[in-house]
Simulated scan of single mutants.
Amino acid sequence: MSPFCDMGVLEQFIEPVGFADVSASVALLTCLGLSTLFVILLNAVSRKARDHPETMVRRMIVAVVVMPVVSIIVLTLLSSRDTTDKAMPLYEWLGFRTHRLWYAILCPIVLVTVGYGSEYLHRILNREPLLDVGDLLCLHGFRNIIAAPLAEEFVFRSCMLPLLLPHWSVTICVFLAPAIFGVAHLHLAWEAYRNGERIQRLILVACAQICYTTLFGAFSAFLFLRTGHFVACYLSHAYCNMLGLPNFGEIPAHPHKSVLMVGHVVAMVLFFGLLAPLTDVSLTGTQFSSYFVP
């Protein structure tokens, strides 16, 4: 483990480094620590409602500025000079590279569009707008589509996966970091409790929140490791937040319910069928590919 005096901050970003010297327990505790700090800071900056403008602005500053800086400092302190084939500059560990950037942008857009194909069909049948770009023009939409994905993907994907990857298999990493990400969203249930929500409903909401965020986080982590690009997981997160959750509850009473049910099945089959081929390392060319070799 190299402190700042061993290697300058700039050199940490340019010289090949690795995280193999960090023990598995320290790596896991660091991820849990960053997650806990994220939640504590979000709740400490304002006691007003989550959607109050003052709360949103303060939390966005914490999420987009404070937490990324803290996370980079932590990773810089934990990284060490490495000359193996799995070493790379810190900025590349974080997912910032130009190699096949165009593909890292295209790939998540295609996959999310396919996965949401039935939702698009639903909106077409209901004669609703396919996308509401106007959300970006309000503070609430900016938080959900720009700020939240930017902060969460950087901290929970870019900064945690490099620490976990040297110690666990890709499969474990794909679900371990998202599990931490999912638990970090429990503060939303606490906020609902403070607002007078019933305990029974809170438990259901909390379980659903953890399941959804963990499953989405697994997809995002998979994209990060397969493409090696931060922009891939960020775009997938932002795109999903823009579209929202699919409206499954309306299907049973919909006049075209059979078409929609078939559409959902086809969309899921296509999504999972294309997930591995479209993110194959032969297409993405990421250096993370060395971790996929047994």
Rank of each mutant, 00 (worst) to 15 (best):
L78M: 08
H122F: 14
E197M: 05
I251L: 13
H187L: 02
G141E: 12
H99Y: 11
H187F: 12
L136C: 10
L176E: 05
L41M: 12
A63T: 01
P255Y: 04
L223H: 03
P252G: 10
K86G: 13
F175I: 13
F222W: 08
A177M: 11
R127G: 13
L202N: 03
T284H: 03
L278P: 00
T36D: 13
V26L: 05
R123V: 14
M261V: 10
H52R: 15
P246M: 10
L275F: 09
V133N: 09
V62H: 03
L28W: 00
A20L: 11
T84V: 05
A232H: 03
F219A: 00
W93L: 12
R198M: 10
L202V: 06
A44V: 04
I73R: 11
I72A: 06
E128G: 01
T227G: 02
Q209K: 07
S25A: 05
A177W: 05
L75K: 07
P277E: 04
V281A: 13
V265W: 13
I72Q: 01
T214V: 06
S46W: 05
A147V: 00
L243Q: 04
L77K: 07
A276F: 15
L29I: 10
A221F: 09
L245G: 08
C138P: 01
R123L: 12
I180P: 08
V26F: 02
I251Q: 12
G18P: 01
S220W: 02
H52W: 07
F248V: 12
L42K: 14
S71G: 15
R226N: 03
L150S: 01
S258V: 14
M268E: 15
A208L: 13
